[in-house]
C-alpha cells in the first residue's frame, strides 16, 4: 500500500490511520536519517505572505536530507506583485522544482494550487483556513511527551475564534477521544461549526473564560496568541490582548505532568519565566517541526518504502 496523498492541504483529508502513519515515519526520522535521501530534489517555498519560522523549518528539513531549496518570501519583489495569477506562478514554478510549499493569504488557495499542479503541494497556511503541518507537529509533540495520543485532557487558551491551529488540532484529536477545555473571552469563542463537529464525534468539551477553574484537570495547556491583525477595531484588541498570561508562578500551582504548548510566535500570553521549566515544551515543539517536515517531504517525493499493510 502506498501513501495515497499527492499533497498535504488540510487535516480533514487524513484518517486516523494516515495521521498515525505520518507520526510513525517521523519517529524514524528522529532516530536516524539518510542525509542524501533527497539529493537531486528541489523544494520551492512560495510564501505569498511572510512566515520566517515556517519557511526556515521546511528549508532546514529539505537541507538535512540533501535537497536544495529555492523560493521567495517577499512577494513584493516578484512578478506576483505585478499581478501574476496564482495559477501562472504555480505553472511556472512546477517546472523549476519537484515539490512546492506555499503560504497564501487567501482561504482555499492551496487546494486550488494543488488541483492545478502536477507536483506535490504542501500547504503552509492558507489564510485563516488550514496549516496542516503545524497540526502534525503538534500531534507528534504530544505523542512524544505522553507516549500516547488517546484520552488526554487538553485546554486551548486564547483566540479560539480565528486560531486555525486550534481548530485543526481539535479536529485531529477528536480521532483520539481527547477531552477538550476551550478557554477564551466570549468574543473569541470556538466557531459553532467546529463545536458541532465535535458533537458529531461525541467528544466531551467545556467552554469558559476562566483558566484557573480548569487548569488542574489538564494534561496539555495549548496557549495561543491573540492576533492583532484579526481585529478591525484596535480598541477591541487592546481590551483582549492581555486577558491570559501564564508565568512560572502559575505553572507551579498546576498538575505535575502538565505540558505547555504554543505554536509561536508568542506575545505576552506566555511569560519567558516559564521557559526553563520542565512543563514548557514549546521550543521542542518547534524543533519537532523539522523532523515531521522531513518525513512529509520524503513521503510525498516517494522516498519512503511503504511498510503499511
Amino acid at each position: 500500500m502506498e501513501f495515497k496523498s499527492k499533497d498535504i492541504i488540510s487535516i480533514r483529508d487524513f484518517s486516523k490511520e494516515d495521521l498515525l502513519y505520518i507520526l510513525d515515519i517521523s519517529k524514524k526520522f528522529e532516530k536516524d536519517y539518510d542525509s542524501n535521501l533527497l539529493n537531486g530534489h528541489i523544494l520551492a517555498t512560495l510564501f505569498f505572505e511572510p512566515s520566517t519560522r515556517t519557511r526556515l523549518s521546511f528549508s532546514s528539513a529539505m537541507s538535512r536530507l540533501g535537497g536544495k531549496v529555492i523560493g521567495f518570501d517577499n512577494p513584493a519583489s516578484t512578478s506576483v506583485s505585478k499581478g501574476e495569477s496564482l495559477l501562472d506562478t504555480i505553472k511556472i514554478v512546477e517546472g523549476y522544482s519537484d515539490i512546492i510549499v506555499m503560504r497564501h493569504p487567501i482561504d482555499g488557495a492551496a487546494r486550488f494550487a494543488a488541483e492545478t499542479a502536477k507536483i506535490p503541494i504542501i500547504n503552509a497556511g492558507d489564510g485563516v483556513n488550514q496549516h496542516p503541518t503545524q497540526t502534525l507537529l503538534d500531534l507528534y509533540t504530544i505523542q512524544k511527551s505522553f507516549g500516547k495520543l488517546e484520552n488526554l485532557n487538553i485546554g486551548f487558551v486564547g483566540d479560539l475564534k480565528y486560531g486555525r491551529t486550534v481548530h485543526s488540532l481539535a479536529h485531529a484529536l477528536s480521532h483520539f477521544k481527547a477531552k477538550m477545555y476551550f478557554i477564551s473571552p466570549p468574543q473569541l469563542k470556538m466557531p459553532k461549526d467546529d463545536l458541532e463537529q465535535l458533537d458529531k464525534e461525541k467528544i466531551k468539551y467545556t467552554e469558559g473564560k476562566d483558566l484557573s477553574k480548569v487548569a488542574n484537570k489538564l494534561d496539555i495547556l495549548y496557549m495561543t496568541r491573540i492576533q492583532k491583525e484579526r481585529f478591525p477595531d484596535p480598541i477591541e484588541y487592546q481590551k483582549l490582548k492581555g486577558c491570559y498570561r501564564i508565568d512560572k508562578t502559575f505553572l507551579e500551582n498546576t498538575k505535575k505532568g502538565l505540558k505547555v504548548m504554543h505554536p509561536l510566535p508568542r506575545v505576552d500570553e506566555l511569560c519567558s519565566s516559564c521557559d526553563g521549566t520542565e512543563k514548557a515544551i514549546y521550543f521542542e515543539q518547534a524543533h519537532n517541526g523539522v523532523t515531521v517536515r522531513m518525513a512529509l517531504l520524503s513521503l510525498l517525493l516517494k522516498k519512503i518504502k511503504n511498510e503499511r499493510t
Binding site: I106, A109, D126, G127
Partner: peptide
Amino acid sequence: ITNNDKVSTLFHSTSSSPLKVRCHYCE
C-alpha cells in the same frame, strides 16, 4: 479563493436537513 480568483465554486453537502454545505476550498 472562489471570490478572489477565477475559480468556480464547489461545495460538499454535509447534511440535507437542516441544509449544511462545506466549501471545497476555504472549508
